[in-house]
Design a protein around this nucleic acid. Structure first.
Lengths: 253, 253
DNA sequence: CGTGGGTTTGATAGTACTCAAGCAAAGTGG
DNA sequence: CCACTTTGCTTGAGTACTATCAAACCCACG
């Protein structure tokens, strides 16, 4: 239940993740972090300033738990660096990862007053924290923000339903192809397109996200590799060799 | 592609579905329909009146298609009677039903400008239609509405993620148990609790929703019946004999 | 050099899918 | 009104695929 938490070289970490966004002369990177949220939502300047006034930075070390299922939902967060997982457990221990949180993602978009998932840091991560009261006030002052949040929620909803299709009707290789393309697309939105895709999570996390065992995940990687759709220089790096081919798999063509 | 559409005895149909909500003396049931939306969102009277001024009723016969995947999203709807399905198809014909729309549900909550699913009427259904422009205007006038929509979107998101867990980690019998409990709960919210649960959809729809074949769905019904968790007086009616037992299954206990 | 976590590979078994047949209820036409 | 067809559900037998169990492997670390 302990909230493991550390504050390692905040400026350093973030500069790497906010290329070109760090305001000149800023001492720490708080402003940069808020801008992440702002840019992601395309908010006007006035709201960005209002948001900056209520933000609090937060650093998580790998493996630490941000919230547990059932915890009251008192804060909203945005991820600025690192990677987290949304975890649900069944009574008998079966695990499912509803999604991964990457830079630019929100935490706390939920109608419920309690969290429905454990949220755990996969790697060292940095977040922006907004107290719920502050958010309420801001949302009242800036109707635009409300609209952006709604749009974001709808995007998440579409993504979740897309995942439903995959879990219901794709075989393991197809699921993995869809997952890799999804990761690549989300990454490209923030860090630009790149040949190599970094997987912050291990095979167990991928398996629990795709509804497969680690063995099946591993075999699916192997088969994608054998078909020259991907290369796997190391277990946490994937090169997408044939995106069209992967997309064909992912869409059942 | 034709929009099958009919207008059968609107008052009759709706009266049955809006018990106690039909304003005395109303000629048709438009107002009743809007109140469905209003009640569902718990909006104040002023907004209900504003909504009523822009609503248009719509009747769909069983099997007709309301929207197709890719259609531009120009209207918002609420379901007041009947049942519809959200359908996605893979290139090779594999089908998935992302969800069922029952009275009180919204259609058109999406960030995208086009629909991501086919929406088809399972049974004869009645909807309220709001033009997107009218909704935009209303949302500007009534910030409350925006908030309600956000809350609704979040609820949908939670539900979709709940389904993810089921598809990823539950076996067929457990999935069916979870599905039946979900249907019962949604029904109870509008029509009150009842012993018998009516399934508007056929086995094929249930299978495509749960990621199973019709044969497996049928066998799962049989097994639930054999364990005295349910009774099945006819194929479209289920009696929940042991909700605790069903819940235990659905949550992996 | 040994240890341990995470990944890959191999052999086996169980579950859900596929194919096929049987059944009941509802619709159709003589 | 009764054969005939159609449609949707259920049941049965065999197969394929993924989970399970087990072992080897690899690299980082002490």
């Amino acid at each position: 239940m302990a909230r493991l938490q550390t504050t390692p070289a905040p400026g350093e970490t973030l500069r790497a993740h906010c290329p070109g966004r760090r305001p000149a002369g800023a001492v720490d990177c708080t402003s940069c972090r808020v801008r992440h949220l702002a840019v992601c939502s395309a908010l006007p300047e006035a709201e960005v300033e209002a948001l900056e006034s209520v933000v609090a930075p937060l650093e998580l070390i790998a493996g630490s738990t941000l919230v547990r299922e059932g915890d009251p939902r008192r804060q909203v967060y945005t991820v600025t660096a690192g990677a987290l997982r949304l975890v649900r457990l069944l009574a008998d221990g079966r695990r499912q990862i509803a999604g991964f949180l990457l830079p630019g993602d929100f935490i706390g978009l939920s109608g419920a007053t309690t969290h429905r998932h454990d949220i755990e840091a996969i790697t060292d991560s940095t977040l922006c924290r907004f107290r719920d009261e502050d958010m309420q006030a801001l949302r009242a002052d800036f109707p635009d923000l409300e609209r952006k949040l709604l749009a974001r929620a709808c995007t998440e909803l579409d993504a979740a339903r897309e995942n439903l299709l995959g879990l219901a009707r794709l075989n393991p290789m197809e699921r993995l192809a869809a997952f890799l393309l999804d990761l690549a697309e989300r990454r490209a939105r923030w860090a630009g397109d790149a040949v190599d895709l970094v997987l912050p999570m291990g095979r167990a996390d991928i398996g629990d996200h795709l509804g497969l065992t680690i063995e099946t995940v591993s075999r699916s990687f192997t088969r994608l590799r054998q078909q020259n759709l991907i290369a796997v220089p190391d277990a946490h790096t994937v090169t997408l060799l044939d995106r069209a081919g992967l997309a064909r798999l992912a869409h059942g063509g």
